[in-house]
Computed example of a mutant assay.
Amino acid sequence: MKRFLAAAALLAVTTGCNASDAAADAITPDMLPKDLNVLFWNQDQRDLAFRTMEKVPKVVVNQIEAGDDVYPLPEGAPIDLGMDVDAYMAKQRNAGLIIVEDGKIRLEKYALGYGPAGRWTSFSVAKSFASTLVGAAVKDGYIKSLDDKVTAYIPGLKGSAYDDVSVRQLLTMTSGVKWNEDYTDPKSDVAMFNRQQPVAGEDITVSYMKTLPREAPAGSKWVYKTGETNLIGVLVSSATGKSLSQYLSEKVWKPFAMEQDAVWMLGATGHEISGCCISASLKDYARFGQFILNGGVAGGEKMLPDDWLAAATTRQADIGVPGRGYGYQWWTNDDGSFAAQGIFGQGIFIDPKRKLVIASNGNWPVATDPEGVGAEREAFYKAVQAAVDREKRR
């Protein structure tokens, strides 16, 4: 596999193929963090590691194989956003930003020494990939119904709070099982479950999640839980008998003709961390958006049930934010747009009405900041929508 990018040119904003991908091999494992607790890496460590997570000591990955063909993303006319995009990217600490409208690239820029040949980690953007694999498994008959109990596919959860939880409730994060996703608290569940000691014959995610107590009836309360997306990955692998990387390659990466191989980080017991940690190129993140925008069709074959995307990308749970909700591991907006989002500025925004995909990679100063850089990103999405609308009116 290709290895990409170096420590040089960390602050240069470039476009297209001018980015300094060729210096990638200058990043060596001794330059990277020695622990795996990404929430407590410093900014310089993140700048290096996010572009080459597979080189971080102790990290093991599976390859998501691409095929021989490449889904075309031809260049379109530059889009006039009426703003200084370079300044926006610098404030966001974007490594890459791409706008694809009606299948054509309207803007593509890179920074932080990153470029089009490189990969960048996804964090929770991977959640939307994982839920899409549930849809594929339903279409393929591996999962019979979203109303099945989770324990039918993950027997190790029997006797826990997950006895009452359906696959659908896992997808919508409405299990009612107690969880703390505070990224600043080293004692939160999202920090602690990464320190779970492996148990022989059991996935490490199951070992931790089965210890959690119930705080609300199943289906009655939404709480964001990365650990439950990790359970979704275990469920898909258990149902299909395949690794997530293999299944994603079979259902999306090869048939939709992604340009590059991607990688997916493994947990301590050798299973993909499905709530996180796919590393792919910026254009392939945009191509995944196109796959969803095109109705889940790849290689002329529909990979998802006919009604899947209509449910997955619309509000299934109230998150307490006006105009927004949560679908099947997608953040939804009442205007019909939706997004995959990951900490530190990763995102894929999809607007079917405008045939619009915006993919971004970055390294925000903090993991999550909904009132600061997060709000600025939402404003950028709206600015792009407005620019597309202005063009349509001409």
Rank of each mutant, 00 (worst) to 15 (best):
residue 4 F to N: 04
residue 10 L to T: 06
residue 14 T to Y: 10
residue 16 G to A: 11
residue 33 P to C: 14
residue 33 P to H: 15
residue 34 K to W: 00
residue 34 K to M: 09
residue 34 K to L: 08
residue 39 L to R: 13
residue 42 N to T: 10
residue 44 D to G: 00
residue 47 D to G: 10
residue 50 F to I: 01
residue 60 V to S: 02
residue 62 N to K: 06
residue 64 I to L: 04
residue 79 I to Q: 05
residue 79 I to N: 05
residue 89 M to N: 15
residue 91 K to D: 10
residue 105 I to N: 12
residue 115 G to C: 05
residue 116 P to W: 14
residue 117 A to H: 15
residue 119 R to F: 14
residue 122 S to V: 01
residue 124 S to M: 04
residue 136 A to T: 12
residue 138 V to C: 08
residue 139 K to I: 03
residue 141 G to Q: 04
residue 143 I to F: 13
residue 170 L to M: 12
residue 173 M to H: 05
residue 174 T to S: 06
residue 177 V to K: 12
residue 182 D to L: 00
residue 184 T to I: 05
residue 188 S to M: 02
residue 189 D to S: 10
residue 193 F to H: 09
residue 194 N to R: 11
residue 204 I to L: 15
residue 217 P to R: 04
residue 234 V to K: 03
residue 236 V to Y: 11
residue 243 S to C: 12
residue 249 S to R: 08
residue 263 V to C: 09
residue 264 W to Y: 01
residue 266 L to E: 09
residue 270 G to E: 11
residue 279 S to D: 09
residue 280 A to K: 01
residue 280 A to E: 04
residue 281 S to M: 11
residue 282 L to A: 01
residue 292 I to Y: 03
residue 296 G to H: 03
residue 297 V to S: 05
residue 316 Q to M: 05
residue 339 A to D: 01
residue 341 Q to M: 13
residue 343 I to H: 08
residue 346 Q to E: 15
residue 350 I to G: 07
residue 350 I to E: 07
residue 352 P to I: 02
residue 354 R to T: 06
residue 360 S to I: 00
residue 361 N to D: 00
residue 368 T to C: 15
residue 376 E to V: 06
residue 377 R to K: 13
residue 378 E to M: 12
residue 391 E to Q: 14
